[in-house]
Design a protein around this nucleic acid. Structure first.
Lengths: 365, 365
DNA sequence: TTGTATGCGTTATCAA
DNA sequence: TTGATAACGCATACAA
């Protein structure tokens, strides 16, 4: 008794192409991979093989290729929250660089949970990703798990956080410069009574930005009123910055101090601050100027549009991806790339939420 | 002359574990995969094998597994634009469902380009994804490419677009119901002079929402003024809805018609409309009420916060993922799932951008 | 210039 | 109850 024929025609393989072309398996492999050895073949044969492969709709099996050549053509991209615009801009930068490579980026959303981070990292290992990019400003980075990667010699870059390691590179904004830019912008507009809403303590970013603000204030000879320096609550959720900013504004208003400008930790915080001020009858920027940080896409969509310090996320993504790409390629050529920490220079983007201070402002309230 | 020892210890394999445990390769495989046959082994042996695997930090090689078992543990997720909040919410829903599976979602950003779409789809085929989810409301879906998937029998679901096929399921919002909800909301607030900013013609969504609005207007006995019905320009970029809404507001104001409410195609359009009105000295919602569509996260962050029709994107993502998941599992059990088109019921979320019409409103301008 | 043979790490079948 | 062994599809060293 014979077996029935297969209902569904199985996937076409190299062997199928070879048979159809009347050549051997290895010849087809040579041609389709553009190996130097293929040069020796008659041009006509090469073309014929290509045509047949096309006609049969042949697709190499990535698993087989990966197994044999130990090149998975996969590159892991871990983000702390896929819904965060900060992340998605970096992602776009990464994809732009990886766009015309044969590398397929595997985007994994850790959702700010350590457990998910480790779980996905494990999966990335199983799939033998050739490189890893971690977008991690809010994320609790699982150092131990990353060390495993390091041991495996998988090129890795981190965006948004400094991570000192001989083999892992970091790309992040120069937070201190950003803090300075933000302060100087307000100062140039005549503001001296400036409130600051700092970020959560555990974020490296927070301390650095504050350092920049302090330094710039000192240079300008402005004394920052401690009562006007608040801090967002600790939280693993970036979106809570909005609520935090709102609360901060309420507290600032409740204090007996006068202020004409606010430096917010990030854009979301700034939006919260603006709403809080607005509800108290204070108009932005007429009564109070507000500066954000990041330049997320909606900074341009709100009313007023937001003056902010741009991190150029897309560029940072491109840089990180390019580095990982190079490292992967350098594995073939043999030379070793050194890891680095790159501080990306920020830019101040002046929009509608800041304005010149006027004489009556800040006197009474 | 002996070869030097390998600098880097190679990846630990099943064979390594077997050797260390003093059992055969297949025994280890049985145990680690929890196969029924493993039940026959002494519990102690099983535990010992597990411990050793753990100790050696053994990770199965996904490529080898995929090659042998033709199960890649990969599921492709194609989105039209990773930076679009509409997408990211759906993604979160998908991940929520896939979260505790062994399936690794491969997120691919087509960036609204047909070419990228096809390219990524090809890569997905090469990597033998077990299922595919396409998030596609703006995207030009490459029908032909999807047909290939269909032929390969890979379970597929589309979110945000209707796609009739015997084997591909669709999950999308009930646009017509949404249009009705939006109109009825304004009508209940006393508005009868209502402007409509329709979406690009080529989007299915646009026509359906308009149908819903028309139907609801008819039921209410309201005649919609054709001069107050505008349309966004054709475009492949959702973010341009903002500019489009802004222009639309200008044109509405330039017309000689009076209106007290605007139904915008989506939230971004609504934001643009609000800005346009604002610049013309019209206050939202005091002078004009504006309704959006989608309920993207920033709808709650703006001033005024946006009244909108919620699509419940997260839920739709969960539904689509669950369906693909079931289809994949049903391949093992043998039974075949029927494809379906699911219209998700929308909800109206009333916020600050709409208010009751008052007597003096809409009379003069 | 083209073909043959081997092995990558698994899973699964069969034999013991 | 456990152990050999044969594929899976591809790349490549080597043979012809």
């Amino acid at each position: 008794m014979k077996k029935p024929p297969p209902i569904q025609k199985a996937r076409v393989t190299l062997a199928d192409v070879a048979r159809a072309a009347g050549v051997s398996l290895s010849t087809v492999s040579l041609v389709l991979n553009d190996k130097p050895l293929a040069k020796n073949l008659a041009a006509a044969t090469r073309q014929r093989i290509r045509n047949i492969a096309e006609q049969l709709n042949y697709r190499p099996n990535a698993a087989a290729r990966s197994l044999r050549s130990s090149r998975s053509q996969l590159i892991g991209v871990m983000v702390f929250d896929i819904a965060d615009p900060y992340c998605t801009l970096i992602l776009q930068g990464i994809q732009e660089t990886l766009g015309d490579t044969a590398l397929l980026p595997i985007i994994m959303d850790a959702h700010n949970q350590r457990q998910q981070f480790s779980r996905y990292l494990g999966m990335a290992v199983e799939h033998h990703v050739e490189g890893l990019i971690v977008v991690a400003n809010w994320l609790f980075v699982d150092i131990e798990a990353l060390r495993r990667f390091e041991r495996n010699g998988i090129p890795t870059a981190i965006v948004g956080r400094e991570f000192s390691s001989p083999s892992i590179s970091s790309v992040l904004v120069d937070n201190e410069a950003g803090g300075r830019l933000a302060f100087e912008h307000l100062y140039k507009l005549g503001h001296t009574q400036i409130a600051v809403v700092r970020g959560p303590q555990r974020l490296q970013d927070s301390e650095r930005r504050w350092k920049g603000i302090e330094a710039a204030a000192k240079t300008a000879g402005v004394k920052l009123d401690k009562k006007l320096v608040l801090q967002l609550p600790e939280s693993a959720d970036p979106v809570l910055g909005y609520a935090g900013g709102y609360e901060a504004a309420k507290r600032l208003i409740a204090s007996d101090r006068t202020f004409t400008g606010v430096l917010a930790f990030d854009d979301l915080t700034a939006f919260g601050v603006i709403r809080g001020l607005h509800e108290a009858g204070l108009h932005v920027p007429r009564d109070v100027s507000v500066v954000g940080f990041d330049d997320i896409p909606q900074a341009i969509l709100t009313m007023p549009s937001l003056t902010t310090v741009s991190q150029h996320m897309r560029e940072m993504g491109k840089t990180a991806a390019a580095h990982v790409l190079e490292s992967i390629q350098s594995k073939t050529t043999g030379k070793h790339l050194k890891s680095f920490i790159l501080l990306h220079p920020p830019t101040l983007i002046a929009r509608e939420s800041t304005a010149k201070v006027h004489r009556t402002q800040g006197r009474q309230r």
